[in-house]
């Protein structure tokens, strides 16, 4: 467990709800949940194995102070951002964003499941987009397939996954929708410097605000 995680757990002692209200995006909405279960019945990921807890259960667990169980759960990472729950919730909770917010918080604390594939993909995606201002789909694929969850280059795993995807990739190249030359640069914004400075500043401001709340 990271030092930051321990510090936060101590700071908020037995009030996990308050912790998420302060520290997770849209966390202040969680207390509005009335446990009706509509979201659980609407969530597509719920129909397949592998999803631990639908939003309703996560919110109940937050209130019950089951901190570690929530933060280390796979559930939030399974969210496909389909907004089904979001438009159906009778209490108008922005559920999609709350799930993302808790996931992001767990990621920041370093306690989210290490090998969670969507956590990994989300990180690769953001870094890819933030680097030049635009997504480079070829590098995205390479990073996704050839790096393991710790970001180390894994040749064998990459080859195995790439082979599985080969027919898809060939189809895309033929259809002009995947350009291998993107490996050597590809699309980018002109003002990359400005974008990076802007993102750095945004991150600092957000961290400062959150730290102030915990103070």
């Amino acid at each position: 467990m990271s030092a930051n995680n321990t510090a936060m757990a101590v700071r908020y002692k037995n009030n996990f709800l308050k912790e998420l209200e302060d520290q997770a995006e849209m966390g202040e909405w969680i207390k509005m949940c009335m446990q009706c279960g509509v979201c659980a019945g609407s969530c597509p990921t719920n129909f397949h194995p592998g999803w631990d807890h639908p939003p309703q259960e996560i919110f109940m667990m937050v209130r019950a102070g089951r901190r570690e169980e929530v933060l280390t759960s796979n559930s939030m990472w399974m969210c496909t951002s389909c907004y089904n729950c979001y438009v159906r919730c009778p209490r108008k909770l922005p559920i999609t964003h709350i799930m993302h917010g808790i996931a992001n918080y767990a990621h920041r604390l370093g306690v989210a499941p290490k090998l969670q594939p969507t956590r990994n993909f989300g990180k690769i995606f953001w870094n890819n987009a933030a680097k030049t201002g635009r997504v480079n789909e070829v590098m995205l694929t390479v990073d996704l397939y050839f790096r393991n969850a710790e970001g180390k280059f894994d040749l064998m795993a990459g080859i195995k996954k790439a082979l599985e995807m080969q027919s898809i990739a060939i189809g895309l190249v033929k259809a002009g929708r995947l350009n291998p030359l993107e490996l050597f640069g590809g699309h980018k914004c002109k003002d990359q410097k400005g974008i990076q400075a802007m993102l750095k500043k945004a991150r600092e401001l957000e961290e400062t605000r959150k730290a102030l709340k915990a103070a």
Partner: peptide, 10 residues
């Protein structure tokens, strides 16, 4: 999917 690493303000 940007939520994972991005956070809200960025």
């Amino acid at each position: 999917i940007g939520y994972a690493e991005g956070g809200e303000l960025p």
